[in-house]
Simulated scan of single mutants.
Amino acid sequence: MENYRFVWNNRLGISLPILDYDWDYYAESERMRIVEQWETIRGTIPDRIIALEQQIQIRQAQLFDEDDFEISCTLNYDIAELASRINDLHIWYRINQEIESRRHS
């Protein structure tokens, strides 16, 4: 039985790694399997970010033309939430760099 899994995250639109132990606990072969799976997922992050940026642009265009205050607030909230998702995806994208640097040290 593997001591890790990848679980779908609806908010980010990708699967995220769930490790049951500290990274150093895993055997090298298991680390390689984790990294290989993560690399496949990680490769989808730039496209995911582009899709979220496009949603932001749509909402910004709607906001530009919106006169209703409540709808403007909702659009601003949506934009902030999408930006937060992008930020989180950038963080997850950098995780592989941290794993690689730990592996080589």
Rank of each mutant, 00 (worst) to 15 (best):
I18H: 10
Y26W: 04
R103A: 15
I86R: 02
S15V: 00
A80S: 14
S15G: 00
F69C: 02
Y25R: 12
A80K: 13
N9I: 00
G43V: 02
Y26G: 02
L75V: 06
Q54E: 13
V7H: 02
E98L: 05
G13W: 04
N9A: 08
N76Q: 14
G13I: 03
I91C: 04
N3W: 03
L16K: 03
I58Q: 12
W38I: 06
R5L: 08
T40K: 10
M32R: 11
G13S: 14
E2P: 05
S101I: 13
G13F: 05
D65W: 09
R103D: 11
Y93C: 04
A61D: 15
Y25N: 09
D65K: 14
D24G: 10
I49C: 02
F6C: 01
M32N: 11
W23P: 10
R59K: 09
I71T: 14
R42W: 01
L82R: 08
Q57C: 04
N87I: 04
Y25G: 08
N10Y: 06
I18S: 05
D22T: 04
R103C: 09
L89G: 06
Q37S: 13
I56A: 08
R11N: 11
I95L: 14
H90P: 02
M1H: 09
L82H: 07
R48E: 14
I58T: 13
G13P: 06
G43Y: 03
D67M: 06
I71P: 00
P46Q: 06
S101R: 10
R42M: 04
I18R: 09
L63P: 01
A61F: 07
M32T: 10
D68H: 14
R11C: 03
W23F: 07
R94W: 01
D47P: 00
R11I: 10
I58E: 12
V35T: 04
I95S: 12
S84V: 02
T74K: 14
Y93S: 05
I49G: 01
R59E: 13
E98F: 08
W23Y: 13
I34P: 01
R85C: 13
P46H: 04
A83R: 12
N96A: 12
W92F: 11
N3D: 11
F64C: 07
F69P: 00
A61P: 00
C73K: 13
Y25E: 15
Y21I: 00
I58K: 14
E98Y: 05
I14N: 08
I56Y: 04
R102Q: 15
P17D: 07
I79Y: 03
D22L: 07
Q54W: 00
Y93H: 14
Y93A: 07
Q62P: 00
C73F: 07
I95M: 13
I41Y: 08
F64S: 06
Q97D: 15
I18P: 00
N3M: 03
Q97K: 12
Q55Y: 06
C73S: 15
A83N: 11
I14L: 12
Y4M: 02
F69K: 14
S84W: 05
R103I: 11
I49R: 01
Q55M: 13
A83H: 07
F64V: 07
E81N: 10
D88A: 11
P46R: 02
S72N: 14
